[in-house]
């Protein structure tokens, strides 16, 4: 589920998206914070080997179940693994999972939604009925069914979350294209003699792209939450992975004796998700013709 449903196509003046991102970051402290959080997570993911003090999966690099202390700022777990290193390496898996899942959802959703809305006829009707059915299934059930079929692992959980998101992005694209297709400028293109391919590639896609990018940005946060949720249940990343949901699952057994194990991975997920939400929502507000008049 996207937490920020788009009710109309975002304002699409040329170059608006890039400029709006910058303007939003500059003007709104919340968006600035969001961008900062994402940058921090990206840096951790890219430079994990250089930033992490220890091997995230190496046992007994420090004392067992030690509270945060100099040298082990986030404490250590039951195997004496350094939590700072695990969180830094975990950023890599967490971000990758989010990006990959959204790419799957967006790729298929865009194709289906675009074709259904533009071609119309029985394809559109079939698509709409399929969406109705899939929406009553709910994303969670679809994801669980996929994991049940494929078996628990991080990559399977990612695929499952990606597949579960296809109807959401499909419907989003569909309604965006529908709004856009009925605008007079598309009719004037037809009157001019432009063909379908030209209209789709030169006019439709450029005009819905900003909306889709914003939706996709926010979607990354939803995907991260869903995938880490599966890992937390033991249906995604398996030990000794340092994916944050899996780390949290391991910490669950020690939550009365070593609460710091619980604190840091949860905080890491929250902050990254918050980053994508703040950035996406801030840019959406700048571009939404209904929100700022």
């Amino acid at each position: 589920m996207t937490h920020f449903p788009l009710t109309s196509t975002l304002k699409s003046s040329p170059g608006t998206l890039g400029r709006s991102v910058l303007v939003a970051i500059y003007r709104k402290p919340t968006v600035f914070l969001g961008a900062l959080l994402i940058l921090a997570a990206l840096a951790a993911a890219l430079f994990a080997p250089y930033l992490a003090p220890y091997d995230p999966e190496a046992f007994a690099v420090g004392p067992v179940l030690s509270a945060p202390q100099p040298g082990y700022w986030f404490g250590t777990d039951e195997f004496g693994r350094d939590m700072v290193s695990r969180i830094i390496w975990g950023a890599r898996e967490t971000l990758l999972v989010g990006l990959l899942a959204v790419s799957i959802s967006l790729g298929f959703g865009l194709t289906f939604g675009l074709l259904a809305a533009y071609l119309g006829g029985w394809i559109e009707k079939l698509f709409m009925r399929m969406l109705d059915v899939l929406f009553s299934f709910t994303e969670i059930l679809i994801a669980l069914a996929c994991v049940a079929i494929l078996g628990p692992s991080l990559i399977n959980a990612t695929i499952a979350v990606g597949i579960a998101g296809i109807p959401v992005y499909g419907r989003m694209t569909y309604s965006l294209v529908l709004v856009e297709r009925n605008k007079p400028y598309i009719e004037s293109c037809r009157a001019m003699g432009a063909g379908h391919v030209r209209i789709i590639l030169r006019h439709l896609i450029p005009n819905i792209t900003p909306s889709l990018i914003v939706v996709g940005t926010i979607g990354i946060s939803t995907a991260i939450l869903a995938a880490s949720g599966l890992s937390f249940l033991g249906l995604g990343a398996q030990p000794p992975s340092s994916e944050w949901g899996a780390v949290l699952a391991g910490a669950r057994d020690y939550f009365s004796t070593a609460p710091w194990l619980l604190l840091f991975p949860g905080l890491a997920i929250t902050l990254v998700v918050l980053g994508f939400n703040l950035l996406g929502d801030g840019v959406r507000q700048m571009l939404d013709p209904k929100q700022n008049k």
């Binding site: 919340t30 939450l225 949720g229 949290l248 939550f255 949860g266 998700v273 918050l274 939400n277 929502d281």
Partner: peptide
């Protein structure tokens, strides 16, 4: 509005564990 952004960003499983720790334990 800030509280709602927080609300959708906190993973429910983490929130649950925190509530359990604070109000339960």
């Amino acid at each position: 509005m800030t509280s709602t952004v927080m609300g959708i960003s906190i993973p429910p499983f983490w929130l649950g564990l925190i509530l359990l720790m604070v109000f339960g334990m």
